[in-house]
Write a protein that binds this DNA or RNA. Structure first.
Lengths: 233, 233
DNA sequence: GCAATTCACCTGTATATACAAGTGAATTTT
DNA sequence: AAAATTCACTTGTATATACAGGTGAATTGC
């Protein structure tokens, strides 16, 4: 319910960086300093620093300290190489294979690049570029969802919604996410297996059988019923 | 020196998945089970599971357990949308802006997609696609370095090598990495600021000045001098 | 038969602690 | 003056512990 302590510290650090108070390559407070400033243990402060490092915001060096990473590009002189043309020019066969698409929430690294806020929606897709049916390049795309509405215009029941259901999010958000991924018809059909009520008015209950649908949809915010379980096909 | 315990557990789990012993969506041992199996504390076992989750190999759900994620694509029916054409068709101005390139080692998620081993070299680059000078799509490319030798054919002194220097790697590996990123001429020039000996024969010592070059290059494996410090421009 | 409760298990957060090992500057020794 | 040592500080790894809260299946109550 309440925001975890390590998240609060992450937010504080990110605000300092985004507002320019802490600039690139500058040293940020150490684990012990943050721990005493926020009144938490060192391991909690460490988690904040570590997660921001994993997200590309900070850079750590054993013995030296933690620094603001250089996330903004330095060079625009770089040439953009086209792997498709290069593969073809070398006499190989080229093909591109899409390998999935999701709608997710931007983390710090993505938010900085796309100039959006952390938590804003982005469409994420992956494409494999093949040379003679061998993967040569993986391409990942993060599209600003606000600028390209209805980027997903298919029924994504082919994607196991396991990840979506287990995402941490407000219940109304989660409900919305499922709608975006599975069409209402698909959800209704799945629920029909258990002869439940229509979509969005299903009440959670427990089933003892393994490997079948186990799903609940929230009716409204504050409702005692929750979005739970995960879908197994 | 020795492989950390959490890394050993990560490797064990990954081997089970890659060999097919543990298949997709299958439940993996819980934190407590792994802890007792490997004779470590729960937090150590947790770290292995958590990092593999962050890398996209596993999927966790509070209360339920940890599962093998569905990292392989289910659908190849997806259309590949071309953001450049769409932006132009909508009457906006389109431009692409490269925002950095690195040579790094593949983690589990990349290794699976590109069908290479964890730790194999890949070239990583980012490109921002702009609509009216506003970012609309971030593109990330991971190129199998073995298939495209000399993908980087420029002198990358524009990239702060801070991250490379702090990478965990055998010293000889690290030396090699620096050579790949900074040309020998660049390193020599930088070192000349401190009037040190020629590149690759520099001995580490301590300098008390801030904000200037502080670098040491390994002479040979087993040498008592080490690769240390980080480069500040 | 259906609903509510219980219960064992699992993940998430948080603390306190310990030791290892790298860093950088000051200090001491040669 | 140069090399070696010391020392305070920092991050990395690891353990033990505690409690919160979600899950799923069994149990109980009506």
């Amino acid at each position: 319910m309440t925001t975890p302590k390590f998240t609060q510290i992450k937010q504080f650090i990110f605000e300092q960086i985004e507002s320019g108070t802490w600039s690139e390559h500058q040293r940020v407070p150490s684990e012990n300093e943050l721990a005493s400033q926020f009144g938490v243990s060192r391991m909690t402060a460490r988690r904040a620093l570590q997660e921001l490092t994993d997200e590309g915001v900070l850079s750590r060096s054993k013995g030296s300290g933690t620094f603001v990473a250089s996330f903004k590009s330095q060079s625009s002189l770089m040439e953009i190489r086209n792997i498709a043309d290069e593969v073809k020019a070398a006499g190989h066969t080229y093909s591109a294979k899409p390998v999935g698409i999701e709608k997710l929430l931007a983390d710090a690294a993505i938010a900085i690049e796309l100039d959006i806020a952390i938590g804003d929606s982005v469409y994420f897709s992956k494409i494999l570029h093949m040379q003679n049916d061998q993967p040569i390049q993986l391409e990942q795309r993060f599209v600003n969802a606000a600028l390209v509405p209805n980027y997903i215009n298919q029924d994504f029941s082919v994607i196991t919604p396991h990840e979506y259901l287990s995402k941490e999010a407000p219940l109304t958000e989660a409900t919305h996410q499922i709608e975006a991924v599975l069409s209402e018809a698909t959800i209704t059909a799945l629920l029909a297996i258990k002869a439940e009520q229509p979509c969005l008015q299903v009440k959670r209950r427990t089933w003892s059988s393994h490997g079948v649908v186990s799903l609940a949809i929230l009716t409204s915010p504050g409702d005692k019923y929750r979005l739970g379980g995960h879908l197994k096909f």
